[in-house]
Computed example of a mutant assay.
Amino acid sequence: MKKEDCFYLGKIVKKYSYKGELLVKLDTDEPELYENIDAVFMDLRGNLVPFFVESSQLHKSDLLRLKFEDVDTEVDAEALLKSELYLPLELLPKLDGNKFYFHEVIGFKVIDSNFGEVGTITAINDSTAQALFEIDRNGIEILIPMNDEFIVNVDKTNRTIEVKTPEGLIDLYLNE
């Protein structure tokens, strides 16, 4: 299994018990979807290694308490701290309407209601306060906030996203 075929589920943040249980900080708005997982892939020194889940339960809002098979002591658990967990992309719940996962829209064309075709999404920048579409327009990078008020329609079949940005936003990038 390769990392590009998976999505990031979360990170092991601390030990929970002397029996090898661990707490995972989940990267999701819906932690309950992952309460009964059977297995995960753990990134160990750059390789995704399958780990089978003996038991799991939600612990406080966004933490998942996991007990892996063959991880039975504090020492075993200690060795796994700070490891990142991944699941195959096909396990992501399907989203309808204008909702999408960031990885899904890479390569989509962006069309602005006022401006016309803007370019192609090359990445999503979510390191800022508000996530941004990174769009390539003939070698020029254009950033558009991923704001619900700007996104008019997401057409997954035709791989396009229609936006309606404030007048002049796109021109800022082109008139340099």
Rank of each mutant, 00 (worst) to 15 (best):
M1I: 14
K2C: 03
K2N: 15
K2T: 08
K3N: 04
E4Y: 03
E4D: 08
D5H: 11
F7K: 04
Y8V: 01
Y8K: 06
Y8T: 02
Y8C: 02
Y8G: 00
G10V: 00
I12S: 02
V13R: 07
S17I: 08
Y18Q: 13
G20C: 05
E21Q: 14
L23Y: 01
K25C: 08
K25T: 04
L26N: 01
D27V: 07
E30K: 13
P31K: 02
E32C: 09
E35M: 11
A39K: 15
V40F: 05
V40W: 01
D43C: 10
L44M: 06
R45M: 09
L48V: 06
L48D: 05
V49S: 11
P50C: 08
F51A: 06
V53C: 03
E54K: 15
S55A: 11
S55M: 07
S56V: 07
S56Q: 04
H59N: 09
H59Q: 12
D62L: 08
D62S: 11
L63N: 10
L63D: 09
L64R: 01
K67V: 05
K67A: 03
K67Q: 10
F68Y: 01
F68N: 01
E69T: 10
D70P: 00
D72M: 09
D72H: 06
E74F: 07
V75I: 14
V75F: 13
A77L: 09
A77H: 02
A77V: 09
E78M: 12
E78A: 13
E78L: 11
L81F: 13
L81C: 04
K82P: 00
K82C: 04
K82Y: 06
S83E: 04
E84A: 05
Y86A: 05
L87H: 01
P88G: 06
L89A: 11
L89T: 08
L91H: 11
D96H: 12
D96P: 04
G97W: 10
N98G: 06
Y101G: 13
F102N: 07
H103F: 10
E104H: 06
V105R: 05
I106K: 10
G107I: 10
G107Y: 05
F108M: 12
F108E: 07
K109V: 05
I111V: 15
D112W: 02
N114G: 03
F115H: 09
F115V: 06
V118D: 00
I121C: 04
T122L: 14
A123W: 00
A123I: 03
I124S: 01
N125F: 10
N125D: 15
D126Q: 13
S127F: 13
S127E: 15
T128P: 00
A131R: 14
L132C: 05
E134F: 04
D136H: 14
I142L: 09
L143C: 05
L143K: 10
I144Q: 00
M146K: 12
N147C: 14
D148S: 11
E149Q: 13
F150P: 01
V154L: 12
V154F: 15
V154R: 03
D155M: 04
K156M: 05
K156P: 01
R159L: 11
T160E: 08
I161V: 11
I161L: 01
E162N: 13
K164L: 14
K164I: 12
K164T: 12
P166F: 13
P166C: 10
P166K: 08
P166A: 12
E167W: 09
E167D: 15
I170L: 05
D171E: 15
Y173F: 15
N175K: 14
E176H: 14
E176T: 11
